[in-house]
Structures are given as C-alpha cells and as structure tokens.
C-alpha cells in the first residue's frame, strides 16, 4: 500500500500481491476515478469546450472572430455585459463587506453565543435561498403593492417608486442579490475568523501594537486570501444568476444571462454562433476573475502551506 506509483513495472517485483485486486493493478488503479472523469469530461468539460470552439466558428465551421466582435459592436449585448458586471461587482463587494462585518460582529463582538449559532444557521439557509422564491419575497415586500412599500407610503409618506426605486435597476437587483451574497460570505469567512488566534492579538499588544496596527499587519493579511476568494465566488454567483431577475421582468431585463437565455429559447433572434460567443464571454469573465485570484494568491501568500 505504500507504493503509489502509476507504472505497473513495480508490480512485477512484488513477491506476493496482498489480494487478487492488486495482482492486476493498472486498470484497478483507475477504476475508482473513471466514473468521475468520464462524467465530468462528458457533461462539464466537453460541453463547455464545444461552446468555446463554436464561439470562434461561423455557421459552416470556418474560423472567425465575427461572433466575438459582435459582443462588442452590438450595443445591446455590450451593454448587457456592462450591466451584469456592474451588478455582480457591486453585489459581491457590498455583500462581502457587509458579510465580513456581520461575521466579525458575531465572532469577535462579544455578543451572546446563541446569536452566533442562530446567525450561522440562518446564513446557511439564506445563502441557498435564491432564484424565483427570493424574487417573490422581494416583490411581496418592496413591489408596487408590497407590504413595506405600502408602509413607507402610508406611514412615512415616502413613495419609493416615485423616488425612482425599481427592481430592474442596478441598485434594485443589488439589494435583492445581497440576500444570498451576505450570508454566503458569512458562511465562508466565519471559519477563517475563527482561525485567528487570540494569542496573536495579545502578542501584538504586548509588543506595543495598537488595535489598528495589529489589524493592518496581521488580521487583514491573514484574512485577505479567503476574503478575496469569496469575493470572486460571490461575483461568479451573481454573474450567472438568472431566475431572480427573470421573475422580476421576464426576458425584458438586459443582463447577460437573460440575453443568453433568450438566445437559447429563440425568443429573439436565433443565432447559435452568437449564443456561443455570449457564453464564451461569460466564461472568460468569471474565468478571468479566478485567474486574477490565483495569481494574487500565489504572489501574496508564500506563507501558506
């Protein structure tokens, strides 16, 4: 069992195989992981590659950059990318900082213990409460006849719709997306904050550091990788989200995933090549975010094992 080499040459030198399965090593080495690789290649990697390749071909399979150029030249598409990036970026950033603040409050704020566990449980639920039901909840709350809308209008004399509020604005969608973004940050960052040792703070204090210096020199650098990683995850999370936005306005809302949805459904124009290009653009953006993260991590964290 100590020999993990992939070659079957080593097998022959073994005096007595411990059991029948290892006597015929080569296939059994791979048999356990085979379903995984077959599955992911067929249903994750190949379909994605198919789209990527398609993005560079015209209808007859010739190499072209026209599809990708169309992403930039068609103002409705480039605009959709822009809106999507804005929404995802801000909902990730705001969600990340709000989630971090909440996490610090419940872990380090000296609040009663039940608040911490209740918040963690709730965050687990809310981070998975997305899609259509989330939209329904916000329509019931802040929709035109929503409870809070009515309350603000009748009690505080504030007509938020007259003030320009709308779920279909960037700000409106961000407010809604925060409902799963904040808890997702909490769920991921709380263990990282727990990993900060109390003694680090005490050591820093005896060495004469102020609380601010300790945060700048130790806490932030230590939390930064998990934090940044989660920001990227939050970004990807809202960048691909459709259902919530779709429930607010159907295909009318101009964000990338809805654009692609319409392409696939054939609601608008049916041009698979353009669809490939849109999909490719989405992968590139979330992919770039991750590449940035990986680059940053390897650069800034030689101290990580």
């Amino acid at each position: 069992m100590t020999d993990l080499s992939l070659s079957n040459r080593t097998i022959a030198t073994k005096p007595a195989p411990p059991n029948a399965a290892t006597a015929f090593r080569f296939p059994t080495q791979w048999i356990g992981v085979a379903p995984f690789f077959i599955f992911t290649i067929m249903f994750l990697i190949l379909p994605t590659l198919y789209l990527v390749v398609g993005a560079f071909q015209d209808g007859d399979g010739h190499l072209t950059l026209d599809n990708l150029l169309q992403l930039v030249s068609d103002p409705s598409i480039s605009n959709a990318y822009w809106v999507s990036i804005k929404i995802s970026f801000w909902s990730a950033i705001i969600g990340a900082f709000a989630g971090l603040a909440l996490a610090i409050a419940i872990v380090r704020g000296g609040l009663p213990n039940w608040i911490r566990s209740a918040t963690l449980t709730f965050s687990g639920v809310a981070s998975n409460f997305a899609g259509l039901p989330l939209a329904f909840a916000f329509i019931a709350t802040l929709g035109r006849v929503g409870i809070v809308t009515a309350l603000l209008r009748d009690v505080f004399n504030l007509n938020i719709y007259a003030m320009g509020f709308n779920f279909l604005t960037t700000a409106g969608l961000i407010v809604v997306y925060l409902f799963f973004q904040i808890p997702l940050m909490v769920v991921i960052i709380v263990p990282a904050i727990d990993g900060l040792k109390k003694e680090w703070g005490e050591a820093a204090a005896t060495l004469g550091a102020t609380q601010a210096q300790y945060w700048r020199m130790v806490v932030i650098p230590v939390l930064w990788p998990s934090f940044l990683g989660t920001v990227i995850l939050l970004f990807a999370n809202s960048f691909g989200a459709i259902a919530t936005a779709y429930a607010f306005a159907g295909p009318a809302l101009n964000i990338v995933p809805i654009k692609l949805y319409s392409q696939i459904n054939g609601d608008v124009l049916h041009n698979p090549q353009l669809g490939y290009a849109i999909a490719f653009g989405m992968i590139v953006i979330t992919g770039l975010a991750n590449v940035f993260y990986i680059w940053f991590r390897t650069r800034s964290e030689r101290w990580l094992k």
Binding site: K197, E199, W200, E202, A203, A204, M217, V218, P221, V222, E301, W303
Partner: peptide, 10 residues
Amino acid sequence: FQAYALFPNL
C-alpha cells in the same frame, strides 16, 4: 505563549 503565537503571514 505556550502555542508560540507567531504571526503566520510574517
């Protein structure tokens, strides 16, 4: 401290 408490990032 008993557990060293060195700053891991430094």
